[in-house]
Amino acid sequence: MFEARLAQSAILKKVLEAVKDLLTEATFECSDSGIQVQAMDNAHVSLVSLNLRSDGFDKYRCDRNLSMGMNIGTMTKILRCASSEDTVTLRAVDSPDNIIFIFESQNKEKLAEYEMKLINMDLEHLGIPETMYSCVVKMPSQEFARICRDLSQFGEAITIACSKEGIKFSAAGDYGNANVKLAQTADSDKEEEAVLIDMQEPVKLTFACRYLNSFVKATPLCAQVKLSMSSDVPLVCEYQIGEIGHIRYYLAPKIDD
């Protein structure tokens, strides 16, 4: 028996919106410690790593480990049927063919059940080693989303250069070029508005806009985003999900031939 309940479906709705552009299907691995998803986009350029800890759920029970292949499009449609304040419960038997989503209104007067067929999937897992990054930047997630959107108008790629002075985003294309510099904030009274840079060595990396613009769909999950970068390795873009877990996106850089 697997059962996981969240008091408000809003978190799960936001998580689905944050992955649906990148993934068509994914395996949800459920164990005593929680729910984990690791899945690459079809082009194998980016990877989504989602972790929801069991202690972050209002109720969590997982009698034996389950790997459930889910169609992300269908799951997104089902979650859109829930109101943000509805309680959501995920339920499956031990060797499931289906998973059931149960939405209950706050006043308990409406109860909706949606059953979704599971799919058989080959589990592809990337071994990602613990990495010390040359630059780790924390910045407001809305600012990052804004910069990705604005610079995407100028080119297909954004170059991120990080030094002690700050972080610079730039894009160049046929119509011109653009760059946005953010300095490290002097006083971080408001934690959510802070730009913090932890730099060992300066880095300069180039990434495809279309993936960055998919990652920023996670913006409603967290006020801050963490970008971890080292030369010639994938970017890690991380959003905390309240007290329950995190979503990390990995993105392979574009490298000069």
Partner: peptide, 14 residues
Amino acid sequence: TPVQNDLTEFYNLA
């Protein structure tokens, strides 16, 4: 122009 790399060039597929 820079070339888009594949993630599997950086991490092993298990």
